[in-house]
Design a protein around this nucleic acid. Structure first.
Length: 430
DNA sequence: AATGCGGGGAA
DNA sequence: TTCCCAGCATT
């Protein structure tokens, strides 16, 4: 680091900063802060909700979710007693769904271990699922007036500029360096306001691009500003490139219902609903778009998806030789690109019988519909059909925990990630 | 220390 | 396109 602080303004040495930094910052905050929903409350639970939602997410996006969520789950108890599915549905579209799951786990942790009370100490807050250093600091300082830091992306940017810190900000070393300075600057009187003011400054003035240094209350203390090099900071480590994954998606349709299933409890979009599908790391078979794929690798995937779920024999004949491919549409996550293509598979109504009826009845029904001719119905045929029913039935049973038939217009009531919006959009047009 | 985990807005 | 945003948990 530099030792001189530039010398152009003698007031910027550490001691002077300690004196003037919090005063200047808090004066600015007092007159310029935004009226945000979570700034009207002292309820630690509500502040918890806001802090979790605000992780990696902008204020404007969060506001409507925050209002709805608190209305639906007004307290730790209400949140903990809800099902995970209900919580995820409320979270739908907000992203980073593990936040919702952990907050739900956290609520249950508090109910089980701590009488449903929000802890007020930083160290205890850290024990709660989903609460890390930042959130613990934010809750402890904002809701309980404790003098602890809350270092988020905004704070990293602001402080890295004030100190003209030329190392990557993500390191432990940088975190310690910033914490030391913040501990020095943070006043005992309004520690929560100090933290919020720092973040507010980062959001409104000390922005990533086009920072408004002319109207910044701290510009006279800012080392980067005095060096006229504000945009150089914060220094960040390069990020990994996103991989492209092709996702072949199966829209299984039965009348006006669609087959949706639960995703596994870990990994991407955990516990959310989805159309069945497979990921292809490489897709030789698809140029960039378009229909009518003949029997081949793609078709095999499609066949497998149908039979895995016990839907063999219920597929309309038109799909037995070729399928129409829809898409692609692109969807981008933080760490991967999905190239989504999909096929729409219509299943015959008799499937209902496989699920609901006994083999004998099933066959009767099938017979009536005319798929098995009366004269050909000999004993071995009956046996074969019965076995097929058993197999299908097992497969259906295996999947019914994870899958469900849902009306198109009811998709809004389940936690279906935004990634599938384009498919829904397409289905409503057809 | 690196990686996985969403989604929307802005440049 | 890329980057950014009131991060956390796992490895």
């Amino acid at each position: 680091m530099d030792a001189s602080n530039g010398g152009s303004n003698g007031g910027s040495n550490d001691k002077a900063k300690k004196q003037s930094f919090p005063v200047l910052l808090l004066e600015w905050y007092a007159q310029g802060k935004r009226e945000l929903p979570w700034r009207k409350t002292g309820d630690p639970y509500a502040i918890w909700v806001s802090e979790v939602m605000l992780q990696q997410t902008q204020v404007k996006t969060v506001i409507p979710y925050y209002e709805r969520f608190l209305q639906r789950f007004p307290s730790v108890e209400q949140l903990g007693k809800a099902t995970l599915d209900e919580v995820l549905t409320e979270w739908r579209g907000l992203g980073y769904y593990s936040r919702a799951r952990r907050m739900w786990e956290g609520a249950n942790y508090l109910l089980d271990q701590r009488g449903g009370e929000m802890p007020k100490d930083y160290d205890i807050l850290l024990q709660v699922p989903g609460i890390g250093k930042y959130t613990a600091g934010a809750i402890a300082s904002i809701a309980f007036g404790q003098r602890v830091p809350a270092v988020d992306g905004n704070v990293l940017r602001v402080v890295s500029r004030i100190l003209a810190w030329s190392e990557p900000v993500e390191t432990v070393r940088s975190y310690r360096h910033f914490s030391t300075h913040l501990a020095m600057w943070q006043p005992a009187l309004q520690p929560g306001d100090f933290n919020q003011a720092l973040m507010e400054l980062g959001a409104m003035v000390c922005t990533p691009s086009k920072p408004m240094c002319e109207s910044c209350p701290l510009s006279q203390l800012c080392e980067a500003y005095s060096q006229d090099d504000v945009l150089f900071y914060p220094v960040k480590k390069p990020k990994a490139k996103r991989q492209i994954v092709t996702r072949l998606t199966f829209v299984l349709r039965r009348g006006d219902k669609l087959y949706l299933q639960k995703r596994p409890p870990q990994g991407l979009l955990a516990d959310l609903w989805e159309f069945p599908g497979v990921e292809l790391s490489q897709d030789n078979l698809l140029k960039d778009s378009l229909p009518k794929v003949e029997a081949g690798e793609l078709f095999n995937h499609f066949q497998k998806a149908v039979s895995e779920r016990g839907f063999d024999g219920w597929v309309k004949e038109q799909f037995e030789k070729s399928v129409t491919l829809h898409g692609p549409v692109w969807y981008t996550f933080s760490h991967r690109h999905w190239k989504i293509i999909w096929v729409i598979v219509d299943l015959l109504e008799p499937l209902v019988l496989v699920e609901k009826l006994k083999p004998r009845e099933c066959l009767d029904q099938i017979d009536q519909i005319g798929h098995i001719k009366q004269e050909g119905l000999e004993k071995n045929v009956l046996k074969e059909a019965s076995e097929q029913y058993q197999a299908d039935s097992k497969a259906v049973h295996r999947h019914e925990k994870h899958g469900d038939w849902i009306l198109l217009q009811d998709l809004g009531r389940i936690a279906l990630p935004v990634a599938f919006s384009a498919i829904i959009e397409d289905l409503t047009k057809i």
